[in-house]
């Protein structure tokens, strides 16, 4: 158990320490959100109709940008070998790393989505649901992203490759997440999102751990 807690705390420290690594995705998120009205025009009605779901696109891209180094750093400095030697199953260690990523990056992004959605003219009463949907959505993105990060860990400059691999799998959370942001079937969409997040967190670490065992060979 302590190995899992240690991994979680180490990853959290690495992401929050070292020059505010976890703040960069947040800045990316706000920058991308800022571009939306610039592209669509600042007209209130148009923004209110189409803007809020775009928070989801910005959040998906922001979390995508953090995946490239997730396992690559561990592979390069030998931490991965230690994880393989640990008595804890690699799947749980991967899940602990995913949990650290969720706390360091997912949680701030979900909270930042509140002002971002309001700025994009989302109705204020919908904002708690949007934040909740992104809390779930970040878990889903990270569950899928673990697999993409693990299979590309050995590839130099694999950022675009990760995006190509992972983006089609982001379709289900985006669909149900933007349904929440658009105010349609909010309760049902949140339930499906929660189900997808649980499935991604259950299956993603298994596939990611299988890939990491190969990477370390």
């Amino acid at each position: 158990m302590s190995a899992l807690v240690a991994t979680f705390r180490r990853d959290l420290a690495l992401m929050w320490g070292g020059g505010g690594g976890a703040l960069a995705p947040l800045g990316f998120f706000l920058g991308a959100t800022m571009l939306v009205p610039l592209a669509m025009g600042p007209e209130r009605n148009l923004l209110a109709a189409a803007g809020p779901p775009l928070v989801w696109i910005a959040a998906a891209l922001a979390v995508l940008a953090t995946l490239e180094r997730l396992f690559q750093a561990d592979l390069e400095d030998g931490s991965l070998d230690h994880m393989l030697l640990s008595p804890e199953p690699l799947e749980l260690i991967v899940l602990a790393k995913g949990a650290a990523l969720w706390v360091a990056v997912g949680l701030p992004l979900a909270l930042a989505s509140a002002p971002a959605a309001i700025a994009l003219q989302a109705p204020p009463e919908l904002v708690p649901a949007i934040v909740l949907s992104l809390l779930l959505g970040m878990a889903a993105f990270i569950g899928i992203g673990l697999v993409g990060a693990a299979v590309t860990a050995g590839v130099k400059r694999g950022g675009v490759l990760i995006a190509l691999i992972v983006l089609p799998f982001f379709a289900p959370p985006i669909i149900f997440g933007s349904a929440v942001a658009g105010g349609e079937h909010v309760g049902a969409a949140l339930s499906v999102l929660a189900g997808f997040a649980l499935a991604a967190l259950a299956l993603g670490p298994i596939a990611a751990a299988a890939a990491l065992r190969l990477q370390a060979e």
């Binding site: 299979v151 590309t152 590839v155 694999g158 190509l164 691999i165 992972v166 983006l167 089609p168």
Partner: peptide, 16 residues
Amino acid sequence: ALFVIYLGYIALWSAI
């Protein structure tokens, strides 16, 4: 989406 998944699969093969 299937087409993009094919592309990702092919790209992964050629990247490693």
